[in-house]
Amino acid sequence: MRLHRYSRPKETALSVPDKPAPDETLPNPLPEPLRFHSPAPLVDIGANLTHESFTHDIDATLARARAAGVETLILTGTDREHAEQAVALCQAHEGLYATAGIHPHQASEWGPELEAAMAELHQKPQVVAVGECGLDFNRNFSTPAEQERAFEAQLALAAESGLPLFLHERDAGARMRDILGAWRDDISRAVIHCFTADRETLHGYLDLDLHIGLTGWICDERRGHHLRDLVGDIAANRLMVETDCPYLLPRNLPAKLKGRRHEPALLPWIVREIAHWRGESEAELAASSTATARAFFDIKES
């Protein structure tokens, strides 16, 4: 979840009905040129579907994702409220899993009660990773000291539970690598979600045997073009794909999208862009990224 890229208030968690029923009367907001279909099943490892913008059409959103070949989604839990809402969505829909953690923006809220709540969430079968957690020294909505305290506490929870880590980092690569290096023997798998940094930072993470999540940032000619020269450095068994929706709508879509809300059905477009710059086919990247994601999150094929 990339809240730091937007000056927005904290969103309200999605209210999940006991028995959600799809609204067949809602029109498809995706114009025909944006109705993609992946050549192989995809896993979106970062979808913020508890965002309030999905409240009115969550069932239709999931139906469009499946029609596009996005069969599995990992819902990002950035605080206790959203993690609990993500678990509720997972219980109501097949093919959904959740993460549970405290985003560095909310690190100042960390305390014994929150730690206990997170540990309890990590025991739920729907929760497949600890996070979103990490460091964000760009805006420092929580102080660096508060961020490091909450981050190390969540590293301890990951070590205790054995769950992989879903990590956030912005403008904090060196410190992130130092902390992860000290914990590397105690934690299992870890992915840097929505990687946007430089070559040195990327190779530092790869040297720590971390996974890398890529978004539509690579589609942004203003600030993401540097990724085009880096994506070939990531081994197929370390690369996963994500939308980070409703954020980071790709800027190079072949048609305009009213409202500019990103959604999982657009993930095949991101795969197409990444595959182009890696010099491989969409089918190859779709297959490898899905296999990597299933192994990382320990998700069995249905």
Results as ranks from 00 to 15, higher is better:
residue 52 E to H: 13
residue 194 C to D: 05
residue 282 E to N: 11
residue 54 F to M: 12
residue 95 G to E: 04
residue 271 V to G: 01
residue 24 E to H: 12
residue 57 D to I: 09
residue 302 S to R: 11
residue 58 I to N: 00
residue 90 C to S: 07
residue 132 E to Y: 06
residue 283 A to P: 01
residue 176 M to I: 08
residue 10 K to W: 15
residue 62 L to A: 05
residue 239 L to H: 05
residue 127 V to F: 07
residue 270 I to K: 00
residue 244 D to W: 15
residue 282 E to G: 01
residue 69 G to V: 12
residue 48 N to T: 10
residue 122 H to D: 02
residue 233 D to M: 06
residue 169 E to Q: 15
residue 238 R to S: 11
residue 50 T to W: 00
residue 293 A to R: 01
residue 48 N to V: 13
residue 152 E to Q: 12
residue 126 Q to F: 14
residue 85 Q to C: 15
residue 141 F to M: 14
residue 37 H to Q: 12
residue 27 P to V: 09
residue 180 L to D: 04
residue 246 P to I: 06
residue 99 T to W: 03
residue 97 Y to I: 03
residue 191 V to R: 00
residue 21 A to F: 05
residue 120 E to I: 04
residue 223 R to G: 02
residue 192 I to S: 01
residue 36 F to I: 00
residue 135 L to F: 01
residue 26 L to D: 09
residue 253 L to R: 05
residue 277 W to E: 02
residue 264 P to L: 09
residue 109 E to H: 13
residue 112 P to T: 12
residue 292 T to C: 15
residue 110 W to P: 07
residue 82 H to T: 13
residue 28 N to S: 10
residue 9 P to D: 07
residue 197 A to E: 15
residue 19 K to I: 09
residue 153 A to R: 09
residue 143 T to R: 08
residue 11 E to D: 12
residue 243 T to P: 00
residue 288 S to A: 15
residue 52 E to V: 12
residue 116 A to R: 14
residue 75 L to F: 08
residue 216 G to M: 07
residue 121 L to I: 15
residue 15 S to K: 11
residue 43 V to Q: 06
residue 65 A to N: 01
residue 287 A to I: 10
residue 112 P to H: 11
residue 158 A to F: 11
residue 158 A to D: 10
residue 265 A to F: 08
residue 211 H to V: 06
residue 226 H to I: 13
residue 16 V to T: 09
residue 104 P to K: 04
residue 284 E to S: 11
residue 273 E to Y: 10
residue 278 R to Y: 11
residue 77 G to P: 01
residue 52 E to T: 15
residue 38 S to V: 00
residue 196 T to W: 08
residue 29 P to N: 10
residue 18 D to T: 10
residue 78 T to G: 01
residue 275 A to Q: 02
residue 45 I to E: 00
residue 253 L to F: 05
residue 14 L to T: 09
residue 215 T to S: 15
residue 83 A to Q: 04
residue 127 V to K: 05
residue 193 H to Q: 05
residue 157 L to W: 12
residue 292 T to R: 05
residue 173 G to F: 05
residue 97 Y to W: 13
residue 167 L to W: 06
residue 297 F to Q: 03
residue 112 P to Q: 12
residue 41 P to G: 12
residue 150 A to R: 02
residue 113 E to T: 13
residue 277 W to A: 02
residue 106 Q to I: 06
residue 242 E to L: 13
residue 299 I to L: 07
residue 92 A to E: 15
residue 102 I to N: 00
residue 19 K to R: 12
residue 258 K to P: 03
residue 74 I to N: 00
residue 83 A to K: 02
residue 46 G to W: 04
residue 200 E to G: 09
residue 36 F to W: 03
residue 119 A to R: 12
residue 197 A to F: 01
residue 18 D to K: 06
residue 56 H to T: 14
residue 57 D to G: 12
residue 122 H to W: 11
residue 117 A to V: 02
residue 206 L to T: 14
residue 261 R to N: 14
residue 113 E to D: 10
residue 196 T to R: 04
residue 133 C to T: 14
residue 83 A to H: 03
residue 289 S to K: 11
